[in-house]
């Protein structure tokens, strides 16, 4: 990768970020945010951080982008303009100072790390004991498994928080209907979904399996699964289940639960989250596959959100244009 490419990429990232912040039309801001996420993914790819690139493009640009678009459509459907109110100059200056200070601190911290002090040297001798090749997965599921365990609970907690916003009348019902209202559009999106969902399932399962040795893993695979589910729901190819369905509840809790149980079983082998010798890969794959299922279901339901009384179709209701 040449310096010219790097510089152009940096300028594009800064430019899209700036436009996303300053453009007054909410939809345009979201579009530039998605472009920004994809460019940032390219930058991670340039740094050979393929795992991070996958996560950034799938979660940062993909899922977050869809979430923002649907949130805007919901606000419009509920009669909110989705506009930004004018804030006082002091608040802006304060926010600028706080963010600028934080950027300086972060830059100082990153630049103070000597290039040769990476985790590589500490981790490489430990990897053979795990039986996997991907060092990122090793860190996420063995050396720093605590973090990942807590993350899986945070994701579950986020869904509980979103669900708790459901009005009393619609709980516990189906999530908001993402299906397109117009018949021909629904059929076009539906046939695309029937083609895409099986492919997404195979792709996601492969990503989990491949995550042991090459970039991939439960979070990236869960996002692919969630993407397939959301497209299918938009095309009406599948109906999303009621939120009190026992099977759905099991799917949501399975990942964190299996992770916790395997972690607790580790106390018999020397400590919490210690994997028995020789079974490390089996334990991590079990955790990854159950996490993948839970993450996929949780992300899809997070994007969908609970039903709201009087909400017209959020996916198709974009005829009103916000001016701010």
């Amino acid at each position: 990768m040449t310096a010219a490419f790097d510089i152009i990429l940096c300028l594009l990232i800064l430019g899209t970020a700036g436009i996303a912040l300053f453009v007054r039309d909410a939809l345009a801001a979201i579009a530039f945010f998605i472009a920004f996420g994809n460019l940032l993914g390219l930058a991670w790819l340039g740094l050979d951080a393929v795992n991070v690139a996958l996560a950034e493009i799938a979660l940062g640009a993909g899922v977050t982008g869809v979430l923002l678009i649907l949130a805007r459509a919901r606000l419009l459907a509920l009669g909110d303009d989705a506009t930004c109110a004018d804030t006082s100059a002091w608040l802006r200056v304060g926010a600028l100072a706080a963010c600028g200070g934080f950027v300086l601190l972060l830059a100082a911290a990153v630049l103070s790390i000597p290039p040769e002090s990476g985790l590589d040297r500490a981790i490489t001798p430990l990897m053979p004991a795990l039986g996997i090749e991907n060092r990122v997965t090793g860190v996420l599921l063995a050396f720093r498994a605590y973090d990942t365990l807590l993350e899986s609970f945070v994701l579950l907690g986020a869904l509980v928080a979103v669900w708790s916003l459901a009005p009393a009348g619609v709980w516990p019902g189906r999530p908001a209907d993402l299906g397109m209202a117009d018949g021909p559009m629904r059929r076009v999106a539906g046939s695309f979904a029937r083609f895409l969902l099986p492919v997404a399932l195979v792709m996601a399962t492969y990503l989990v399996w491949a995550g042991s040795d090459v970039p991939g893993g439960a979070f990236q695979a869960g996002t692919v699964l969630a993407g397939g589910l959301i497209v299918s729901a938009i095309g009406g190819a599948i109906g999303l289940p009621r939120s009190d369905l026992p099977g759905l509840r099991v799917a949501l809790v399975l990942g964190p639960l299996v992770f916790l149980l395997i972690g607790l079983a580790g106390t018999g082998f020397g400590g919490f989250l210690v994997y028995p010798e020789g079974l490390a890969k089996a334990a991590m794959l079990s955790i990854e596959y159950s996490l993948f299922l839970s993450i996929g279901a949780t992300l899809a339901l997070l994007v969908t959100g609970p039903n709201v009384i009087g909400l017209a179709d959020p996916a198709g209701g974009t005829e009103r244009k916000s001016d701010c």
């Binding site: 117009d182 559009m185 076009v188 999106a189 695309f192 974009t318 005829e319």
Partner: peptide, 25 residues
Amino acid sequence: LFAVIAAGITSQLLARQARLDGTRS
């Protein structure tokens, strides 16, 4: 292949929505 299929589908949807908006407004 996937990019072409996705582009074809989304342009169909966009065109239909534009037409609906046009007749409605």
